[in-house]
Amino acid sequence: MLNARNETLLNEMKFYVRSSSVSDKKASEILMELEDHLLTAQQDGKSFEQVFGQNPKSYCDEIIRELPKPTKREQLGTYALLIPLLLLWRFIGGFSGELVIPLYETIAYMILSSALACGLLVALRKGAFMPKRQSVWITYVISLVTLAAYVGFFVFANRFLPVEPRLVLHGSYAYVTAAISLFIILFSLFGPLLKKKR
């Protein structure tokens, strides 16, 4: 077992490498090797710095440079993570047998969510390897900004964005869409777990 300090630092490295634009499979492989190396080094009484140097961020950059880019499938997988968020929003107000999808509001919501997701990733990557106090602050500020952006969106979207054109689904169409959405939401949330179990 890794000691607490090594585990924390390694987790930062894992986050930093995985959140960059690299093949997930190859990244997992190299991170597994680095973990194995650190564990053996720890058993031999060596420090984290002896293994990865004084600047783990620049070491990770060296690793990232050598890793292949993500495959098209892996890229799609990353975007697919946004889908449940997009679908969930339509059900926040409850589902009463009718689904209303206003065009402009949906587009605005998608752009906002994508921008926030990108911003979040960039900010968290910047926060990696920072002292704990600083990274707690960054997380706090990001959460507030995200919350404010969504609240702002729900308050003002109706006032500024035209309601038409909109797609209204009634009866069985609405139920089928809701069922498919629910399935996609559940699958994207729990699918990775199923894959891991296999």
């Binding site: 090797e33 680095l34 194995d36 190396h37 002896q50 293994v51 070491y59």
Partner: peptide, 24 residues
């Protein structure tokens, strides 16, 4: 494997600023 490679190189006199250099 990685750790063993690094050990063999070190035993023969290769000095590493950081052991992880072999992975890139």
């Amino acid at each position: 494997y990685g750790y063993e490679i690094m050990e063999k190189l070190a035993v023969n006199g290769f000095v590493f600023a950081k052991e992880g250099s072999i992975y890139p």
